[in-house]
Design a protein around this nucleic acid. Structure first.
Length: 419
RNA sequence: GGAGAGAUGGCAGAGCGGUUGAAUGCGGCAGCCUCGAAAGCUGUUGUCCGGGCUCCCCGGACCGGGGGUUCGAAUCCCCCUCUCUCCGCCA
């Protein structure tokens, strides 16, 4: 949730920032009005309640002293009746405000480049040179088909489209990658977690998936539970409604989870292969950071994701997302895109974001700053998307005969298997 | 799924329907003591919102969540959620 006081005091700046994210600033005027209306309604209600409280105290006193309470009771009854509509008004104002506030995205950092979409993202740097092939490299689905590694048809049969089955060495490689990522993240000080793959609506609101993006989630019937779209949800909400001691910051966490997404808005996109599935594996990093030190943590996380790709020998590039391509909760995001020779292009494999205090405000995650409680900054980043890494390894390490060479660092996880 | 018990401040644990935002203990913080520490003693110690234009005061809200009774509810009533114990089922 955005900072309502900031909107109030820096209306023009906030409007400009929101515009960068492609949001109509008119919504901010509306927000400001609703905020003012709530304050007014609350002031009236609280005054009436104060009156009621003081009369009630008097009531008790009269009774103890044996005084006549008839006249007082009449006054108190009248006031009580007057409170009812005020109560209603305040409640309505509250609902109107939060309904709107929860749908407004985070404000982007000043450093975020201007731009409408993906095309306006800014490349920061490339890491590793793409390999030169002496033959025409195949796309991952063709390789998978040739070797029987991915069974798309049976995935569909078992569930529906956009599900697939990994088989044999591919399934094993998937597991190897998960272990490799978790081990390396742990080496960098991220504590490993194993978390529920479902989360309730309060937690999803905390990280910003609800209420606005309910259509992107799989909901469990008759339960207040959703399949998690990312481990960011359980990890970030680990400290939901808690106040951390300052010396515990930053909290660095990592977890492997499958991720479940409806992909409601992406009909027809990436339908071939494993790029966009309803279920995929991901190892996630989440940090709860001191607000003055979150930028350094952000850099660490970007570097970590990049190092994993480098260690796997996968060429990639770092891209700073422009305002229009930034996610709902993010103030700043750097994507890592891996080179896919079969597709002859870079594809997103990790996304590292600093949400500043946007999620912290929604999830009420705070730390003790001396005597005061302050909101923390929360950050998240993939390290890495496992399925897409698998694809990248297949495409980058393919041989002319269709076999795949296992990257050096994974060999210990594959018990010496070379192919 | 069935039966019972419970949910109070960082933790433990009291709380006749009326100065109870809440006893007490632990923990935390500050001070005294000490060369220093421990022990001991003294004081202090919840969160959120609004106003004064701020670390001090005033008002409001909060004792799992939501309703209700009442002039007044942590305390009485109803619903929901969760936890624990027993039974059933189960990896």
């Amino acid at each position: 949730m955005i900072d309502l006081k900031y909107i109030q005091n820096h209306f023009n700046e906030a409007s400009a920032q929101l515009l960068k994210k492609g949001v109509d600033p008119a919504i901010l005027s509306q927000l400001r009005e609703r905020f003012a209306a709530l304050k007014e309604a609350n002031a009236a209600l609280e005054a009436a309640k104060a009156e009621q409280n003081s009369m009630s105290r008097l009531f008790g006193q009269y009774k103890r002293e044996g005084k006549d309470i008839g006249e007082l009771k009449a006054r108190v009854d009248a006031n009580k009746a007057a409170i009812v509509p005020l109560q209603e008004a305040a409640r309505a104002a509250e609902a109107a405000l939060s309904d709107l506030a929860l749908t407004i995205p985070n404000l982007p950092d000043d450093t975020v480049p201007q731009g409408a979409d993906e095309a306006d993202n800014v490349e920061i740097r490339k890491v590793l040179e793409p390999r030169v092939f002496g033959f025409e490299p195949l796309e991952h689905w063709a390789l998978a088909e040739r070797n029987g590694w991915i069974d798309f048809e049976r995935g569909v049969k078992l569930a529906k489209s956009r599900f697939s089955v990994l088989r044999g060495e591919a399934a094993r490689l998937e597991r190897a990658l998960i272990n490799f990522f978790l081990d390396r993240n742990r080496d960098k000080g991220f504590e490993e977690f194993y978390v529920p793959f479902m989360a309730n609506s309060t937690m999803l609101q905390g990280t910003g998936q609800l209420p606005k993006f309910a259509d992107d989630l799989f909901k469990i019937e008759d339960e207040d539970l959703y399949l998690i779209p990312t481990a960011e949800v359980p990890l970030t909400n680990m400290y939901h409604d808690e106040i951390l001691p300052e010396d515990q910051l930053p909290v660095l966490m990592t977890a492997y989870t499958p991720c479940f997404r409806r992909e409601a808005g992406s009909a027809g996109r990436d339908t071939r292969g494993m790029i966009r599935q309803h279920q995929f594996d991901k190892v996630e990093m989440v940090a709860i950071a001191h607000p003055e030190r979150s930028d350094a943590v952000f850099e660490t996380m970007v570097q970590q994701a990049s190092d994993l790709l480098t260690e796997l020998g996968l060429p990639h590039r770092l891209v700073e997302l422009c305002g229009g391509d930034l996610g709902f909760s993010a103030a700043r995001t750097i994507d890592l895109e891996v080179w896919l020779p079969g597709q002859n292009r870079y594809r997103e494999i990790s996304s590292v974001s600093n949400t500043r205090d946007f999620q912290a405000r929604r999830a009420r995650i705070r730390f003790k700053d001396g005597k005061k409680n302050r909101l923390v900054h929360t950050l998240n980043g993939s390290a890495l998307a496992v399925g897409r890494t698998l694809i990248a390894i297949m495409e980058n390490y393919q041989n002319e005969d269709g076999t795949i060479t296992i990257p050096e660092v994974l060999k210990s996880y594959m018990q010496g298997n070379q192919e």
